[in-house]
């Protein structure tokens, strides 16, 4: 079957999930993942990230809705759909007594691929696991086990790699190695979907961002666009003489007096043509407020994420 290269590699339509206990974990999810992109799915604990990933991978049944992976329905054509996916789960679920080599070979076979020792050797070498190939998995440290899970997920050369919180409990060095590998995989055309609570990682890595809260996908946007659209800049003025309160006549600027009256913060929207900065400085001068230093900063993806979640809480309340 010929698949249109422009069609989304993952297409989810109207996906709902109610767990056996009656808990509504996903509400009407619509999502498209483009071929070859790195997509970061962000959301607080319990938002439904793992649930969504588990449904796409076939671990959990959706209550309703349809999903296709590489054009194949995940229920009707489960073989083709699942063969395209490699999953690194959030929890460190590993075999105990098997060796690293045995467990990656098992994964490759399970996913229907003929044995290929040179390929698996390369995967293990890339993850600096080759020296540990004959070690039993249970004798490895947590970070090593995480690498084993990544190796298992890559063992069948998947088109799509899911990384559910890959950086949890992983040291800086491995994190760098891992992200380097993710970039390499992407360069080879692998689509990567990851979740993380380290938002700066998503800011670094992702092409697009999805934010999920309480089972609802509240934003799906190109990262650059999202940062431009929702990003705020802040101008901080350090005053020459601290003040107790802002003089009357400055209310309309919604300034924030901080650091015991030593600084004044001014937030402005990057999207607007007029930042209002020249006018502000003039007005401050008119009120006799003198400053000795000024510095501007930009909101990070983390700031945007936090405000999105707060906003969606506010709407829900």
């Amino acid at each position: 079957m010929v698949v249109d290269q422009n069609s989304p590699i993952i297409f989810a339509h109207g996906v709902n999930k109610t767990y056996a206990g009656g808990f509504l974990a996903l509400k009407n999810i619509h999502l498209e993942i483009a071929r070859g992109e790195i997509f970061a799915l962000l959301g607080p604990n319990g938002a439904g990230k793992t649930t969504l990933i588990s449904i796409i991978c076939g671990i959990v049944n959706a209550s309703s809705g349809t999903i296709t992976v590489d054009g194949q329905d995940i229920v009707k054509d489960f073989r083709a759909a699942r063969a395209a996916i490699g999953l690194v789960p959030q929890e460190l679920h590993t075999d105990a007594f098997e060796t690293v080599w045995a467990t990656v070979n098992f994964s490759r076979g399970l996913f229907g691929k003929a044995p290929n020792a040179p390929y698996l050797e390369k995967v293990l070498r890339d993850l600096t696991l080759w020296d540990k190939r004959d070690a039993k998995v249970m004798t490895l440290s947590g970070g090593m086990k995480r690498r084993v899970l990544i190796a298992k997920a890559l063992a069948h050369e998947p088109l799509i790699l899911f990384l559910d919180e890959p950086s949890a409990g992983v040291d800086v060095e491995l994190r760098h190695d891992m992200w380097r590998m993710v970039r390499e995989l992407r360069a080879q055309g692998t689509t990567i979907i990851l979740t993380t609570h380290y938002i700066e990682e998503a800011e670094d890595m992702a092409d697009r961002i999805g934010v999920i809260n309480k089972g609802e996908l509240i934003v799906v946007e190109d990262k650059e666009v999202l940062m431009r659209k929702l990003g705020k800049k802040q101008l901080t003025l350090t005053l020459r003489h601290p003040i107790n309160s802002l003089p009357a006549g400055l209310e309309s600027w919604s300034l924030i007096l901080a650091e015991g009256g030593h600084t004044v913060d001014y937030r402005y929207n990057t999207q607007e043509d007029e930042t209002g900065i020249p006018e502000l400085l003039r007005t401050l001068g008119e009120h006799g407020i003198d400053f000795k230093d000024l510095r501007s900063s930009e909101s990070s993806l983390e700031d945007i994420f936090v405000s999105l979640i707060q906003q969606s809480r506010g709407e829900a309340a």
């Binding site: 588990s54 991978c57 076939g58 671990i59 489960f78 073989r79 083709a80 759909a81 699942r82 063969a83 996916i85 999953l87 789960p89 929890e91 679920h93 590993t94 075999d95 994964s107 399970l110 996913f111 229907g112 298992k152």
Partner: peptide, 10 residues
């Protein structure tokens, strides 16, 4: 918990 792999396999 390793059943995740079995469930996600083709």
């Amino acid at each position: 918990g390793t059943i995740y792999e079995l469930l996600s396999a083709p």
